[in-house]
Amino acid sequence: MSTTVKRLTVTVAALVLSCGIASAQSISPKESSAAKQGDAKPDDYERWDAVREVYFPGRTIEDGSAFLSLDAPYRAQDAALVPVTVKAALPADAGWSIKTLTLLIDGNPVPLAGKFHLYDETAGAGHRNLSIGTRVRVNEYTLIHAVAETTDGRLFSAERYVKAAGGCSAPAMKNPEQAMARLGKMKLNLPQSVPAGGDVTAQLLVSHPNHSGMQFDQISRTYVPPYFIRSIKVSYAGQPVMDVETDISLSEDPSLHFTFTPKAAGDLKAEVVDSKDQTYTGDWQVTPQPAS
């Protein structure tokens, strides 16, 4: 008989819990006279005023609801994995298109979840219908914002209120060994039909723990160091599709849904760089069906 027994030598740890992350939300007793989004409170809009001043100092942001939408569950199932989708449908005669999309989780320690620089293979005509989706950590009940910057230099926003808490400090990895074994692996999911010259929505998955730096390990009594993807560049047939600057708010195993327009067969390539300056690349051959 052999028993496998390991004795642990763990030293006594007296812990005083930090209250810093503990407050799930901060709601003032003020009347919410001008709540525009569900349960958003005046405080949420004060916070948005502060956040927009950080990322777009001194600039006017117009209401983009005519062409811009932001989708997220009102109450998230998993605060560490909240699906968010930004869609834009531009008027055909707009004369401008979207240059960048910035996704902000107002209440997160680092509100910037992603800044998507969009390219256009159709020489300036712009993305008429675009769809960008990702999954984010949400640390407390908050407004989230999508801000579109147009090629003629204006800013438009869409917003949404999300009830989720603890997403940044949640230990997302349910099976850490398996997750680390596939670090840096990528997957590309394409729809069953990829028509040449049509708008195709693809999903890029990157296996990465994307540690937020707020996950507390009580054994070492320290926070797990932040370790996350900083940038994702996607190109098709040698032309850039989008460059994304990302940060700690993206969920573990970052997922990106994006739109591109394959006119002919080519390689879709992804280049991902993380906060340890490691680079991961993916390359998939795409053969669109000729338009009938």
């Binding site: 763990v10 503990a22 603890g166 400090s169 949640a170 996950q215 390990d217 009580q218 054994i219």
Partner: peptide, 16 residues
């Protein structure tokens, strides 16, 4: 053998 690391990664939230 994975108990302690799994617990300690979550203990903060469990206690709250």
């Amino acid at each position: 053998s994975n108990f302690l690391s799994a617990l300690m990664a979550r203990a903060d939230g469990y206690q709250r």
